[in-house]
Simulated assay, not measured.
Amino acid sequence: MICSLFLTELFLLLSVRSWLAHGTTAPPTYEHTDPLTGTTVQCDRCPPGTFLRASCSSDTKSDCAPCPEGSFTELWNYIGHCLRCGICGRNQVVKKECSADSDRQCECKQGYFYRQDYDMCVRHSECPSGHGVLTRGTAETDTVCRICSDGTFSDISSADHNCTQHQSCGNAGMKLVLKGTIWHDNVCAKVKDGAAYLREIIPAFFIHHKIKIKRLRRIVHKLLPDDVRKQEGTSELSFSELHSRISSWVSSATPMQIRQLPAILIKMRASHAGEKLQNILNAIDKNLSKECHNGC
């Protein structure tokens, strides 16, 4: 019954579109049977922002009333009540408030966009490490990412961060010990221990080399001091929390602990990541050794 009434009202509202398209200046009408005389009369429809309180008769005009607050009509009509204003859905905000002659307009809130195949607002995609934002997402479109060009990098996942230029070691009076990639900066030398330079890229390394969360939890668990390990545990930590724990560990780790990290990864069955990290450390040590031969 409710569905039938809704469809009838919808038909009545849409039926005036052809009148609007032809630009007629006189109010559109509808046929009504006068209950007193039984004759068919042409009644004026009610303008947008109003509804039909009483139909016309042979000697009276249509009685139109303003839409109460919280309701509207957008077209000339002869429905018996105004339509209820729409409500914004999940992750939406009001773009334009409802008025007597127009419904409430909604749009996705900051950080979200309307995805048509889901018929809902979803969070903007984050560009992974090694990629920067080409076009920021809007309420209607998702983030557009691009791979970092030569000489630039990004070591975070972000929906608004662009690639950053590699630092110039020469400008800082230092030597290049590890050339930057799309996911980490140039590493420049001042001290002799290669572990000090490996430390700089370890947080970015774990972000870029996606290790499965269960294995990453075991790795972080292994890195934590015994007292912290007993108190906190890692079984429920998310990726962001795990990366935060790694950054904390890196900031306090000794050079020897940094050098042992590749072996720990291999032991925890993250062999590919462990071997890659060891290769990076070997490259740093090689470059530092070369600098020493040239006058360290």
Rank of each mutant, 00 (worst) to 15 (best):
Q42P: 01
Q278P: 04
C88W: 11
A189G: 09
G194K: 12
L52S: 03
E126N: 13
E69G: 04
C98S: 07
G89A: 12
V41S: 06
P128E: 08
Q105D: 10
K214F: 08
C67V: 00
K96G: 11
F113H: 15
E9H: 11
E107T: 09
C292V: 05
H272E: 12
L198K: 01
I201K: 00
G111Q: 12
Q257S: 13
K109T: 11
P262Y: 03
N77V: 03
C121V: 08
A204I: 00
E236K: 12
D226E: 13
S252K: 11
R104K: 15
Q110D: 15
S18K: 10
R229L: 09
N186W: 04
A204G: 08
S240G: 06
D285T: 14
K210S: 10
N294K: 12
M174Y: 04
P66Y: 02
R269Q: 14
L281R: 07
C88F: 10
C88S: 13
C121F: 01
F72R: 09
S238L: 05
W76P: 05
I266L: 00
H131K: 10
C127R: 08
N294S: 11
C145T: 03
N279L: 15
I202L: 14
N279S: 15
D150Y: 10
S55R: 02
S252E: 10
D226Q: 11
P203K: 01
I202R: 06
N287Q: 14
G86Q: 09
V133W: 07
K290C: 08
Q257A: 15
T164F: 01
I2Q: 11
I280W: 05
R123V: 04
L134W: 00
W76R: 05
G80M: 09
S158V: 09
I202W: 07
F206T: 03
C127T: 03
S58D: 03
I201H: 04
I201Q: 04
E291W: 13
D155I: 03
C3L: 14
R115S: 13
N287T: 11
L216H: 08
N77R: 02
C46R: 02
S15V: 00
D119E: 15
S158A: 12
D59P: 01
T33G: 02
H32S: 04
L7G: 04
M256E: 15
H293S: 13
H124Y: 04
T141Q: 07
M1P: 08
S271Q: 13
G137L: 06
Q105V: 10
R259A: 13
K230D: 11
L7D: 11
I280K: 13
L83F: 09
P28A: 03
E232L: 14
F239E: 14
Q278C: 09
R215M: 07
I201T: 04
A196V: 00
K214D: 15
D117T: 14
P47Q: 09
E69C: 00
R123C: 01
L7S: 13
S149K: 11
C64F: 00
I87T: 15
S244V: 01
L10I: 05
L36W: 02
T60D: 01
K192C: 04
W183Q: 07
V228E: 11
V220E: 10
R136Q: 12
A273M: 06
E232T: 15
E275G: 09
Q260T: 05
V133P: 07
C292E: 12
K267D: 14
N77H: 03
L20K: 09
T152N: 06
W19H: 13
P68M: 02
D142G: 02
K190E: 08
R123D: 01
H221C: 05
T73L: 05
F239P: 06
A189E: 10
C106Y: 14
R229W: 06
